[in-house]
Design a protein around this nucleic acid. Sequence first.
DNA 1: GATTCGATCCTAGCACTGCTAGACACCCGA
DNA 2: TCGGGTGTCTAGCAGTGCTAGGATCGAATC
Lengths: 192, 192
Amino acid sequence: MSVQERKERERAARERLIVATARELAEQQGWDAVTTRRLAERIEYSQPVLYSHFRGKREIIGAVALEGATEMAALLRAATRAADGPRARVAALARAYLDFAARNPAVYDALFQLDGGLAYAQEDTPQPLKDAFAALLESLGEVAGDGVDPGLFTEVFWASLHGLATLTRAGRLLPEYAEPRVELLVDRLAVI
Amino acid sequence: MSVQERKERERAARERLIVATARELAEQQGWDAVTTRRLAERIEYSQPVLYSHFRGKREIIGAVALEGATEMAALLRAATRAADGPRARVAALARAYLDFAARNPAVYDALFQLDGGLAYAQEDTPQPLKDAFAALLESLGEVAGDGVDPGLFTEVFWASLHGLATLTRAGRLLPEYAEPRVELLVDRLAVI
DNA sequence: GATTCGATCCTAGCACTGCTAGACACCCGA
DNA sequence: TCGGGTGTCTAGCAGTGCTAGGATCGAATC
């Protein structure tokens, strides 16, 4: 038994190595540079090994996305915990979200831009994704306003953040407006 | 002279054919299906012909994007013209924008999701792009509110629309909330 | 401790991608 | 009618994701 357990441990370790390496490579040189050959070379195994862990490149992206979702949820909760009052919590949430997107562009892409083969807003949505949305809902629900569904409000606020995150990174918005944009969004959308 | 003019006319026609075919193919089967081989086959020329018109695939995407920007600007202006009052104009604008994104997903991708090699929010930004932003600015500027820069407000409102458009199409938002999301966004962001 | 057998991994290759060099053919102007 | 130049195509390069098949290594058995 012990031998098999060791093998399973090693296998799990290698799987983590693949995901971590893919993420690192993507952050360094973009997802286009994450080819199966380069990835295999970096983990010092041959290509087919990747396919014994994942169905294909898409599933590797999905794995990075799930890892990112867990991190993001934790960061959002930490940011809101450190803030006092609904207004401050929402502002902290917004900044933490945009900060995460800016610091981890490849992970953000894996989550929301690329096809990682994950289901969203459905029954079979993976737990980390549900939890990340829950982290948003926790702080945003309290400022949705009377008669407005918290889920609906969260979707709208999230979409706005997502738009800001992606358009900012694509260089489609003026850099000097970054902070006022957040202020405006929070002031207008949230009902304090 | 006449011969050369005819040749230039034919060349221009073929260029339009390339862009139209690329767009059609992208709308039918997604941008992944728009390969240089397939595109060449559809226009009944060989691959290298594409490269006598465009530097590469990226420039073809860019051409589709510019065409889309012009259309979008016209649609947005038509929608706002038909509405009475600032509130109705903004709501019409939002619906027209999301409608365009939903009806022309490939064009929308070319504009805001893919790399078409175009400059944004800069000096050398192509006119159609500047004009599309101007179309947004025209209706949104009047509801920015006192002391709020119209450009800043437009960026935020646009980002929200963009977020809704992309997340909706990626199946990341609940379909049944589509209309209330727009209502909420307009009610909260716009100062009427 | 030798041997068999199965899991594990790698080499090689497929069909495809964007892009390009060089040969060919055709058409215009003389 | 003929030469020259423009325009187009064939063929090929390096790279992509993915996979079939054989080789190798190590664990369990006799």
